[in-house]
Amino acid sequence: MSAEAVIQTRNLSKTYRDFWGRPKVRALNSLTLDVNRGEIFGLLGPNGSGKTTTLKLLLGLLFPTEGDVSVLGKPAHDVSKNERIGYLPEESYLYRFLNADETLDFYGKLFDMPSKVRRERRDKLIEMVGLQNARRRQLKEYSKGMTRRIGLAQALINDPELVLLDEPTSGLDPLGTRDMKDLILKLKEQGKTVVMSSHLLADVQDVCDRIAILYAGELKVVGNVADLLQSQDETQILSSQLSPEAVQEVEAVLARHGATVKRVSHPTSTLEDLFLRTVEESKARPGRRFGPGEGPAAKS
């Protein structure tokens, strides 16, 4: 791929050890992955599949057992890369005794930002995440949605090039989820690279450019969302509601071109199909790895 890789992992593995240093869990196995500048990349997988471990390895919170990571061209343990990264943890691990203003100010200081810049960024972000009315309340009084929003705001305090979002929509109501997705798309518009992990497929499908599906620490599928879901020998036509007559007419037109109508129905979330099939496949044939374009969806 010609685009510049913002994140590169090579054979990245992580084994958790117990107190005596004996291997306990192989959380990630030989992950090789590139994330390109400007895209929204989704890490997809059931709970315990290694998504969060991957993110933490990228951030240098965990040390890889084997393999290499490079983030923005620097090794994961290099603190200076953090200058250009924003991270939203799975649950917003913030200081609950601070209020929104203090929180953003605090993280701003950690980027060594002068106070004027901090104030500007703070006000802008608070407005962006819509917490103007709650900025002086301590976080322990916040609802789940508000906590996610302040979490996102702190992730963006440094106007990062790369944003890592761990389950950004978890625990949010549909409206909140929508807002979050809009915010993520806005980030892409601003030219930022976004890596998000989720187990909620609809979210990923809506916003991600590319996805990787992880299962039991192994990368199963990686590729362009559109490509992954697209079958080369099938064409899906989506239209507004058609009358049965109109459907017949369309079928007639298709027949003329030598095509057969396989199914006429309302669209379903096909990523879910893909995901479930991947998972089932993996259970049946562990260790099998699918390249882009040759996922289970493509073969059926």
């Binding site: 951030l59 953090n82 943890p89 691990y93």
Partner: peptide, 14 residues
Amino acid sequence: KDRSLHTVVTKPVR
């Protein structure tokens, strides 16, 4: 334990 430190160390903090 509260993992609030995790958020902190993802900033450029030594």
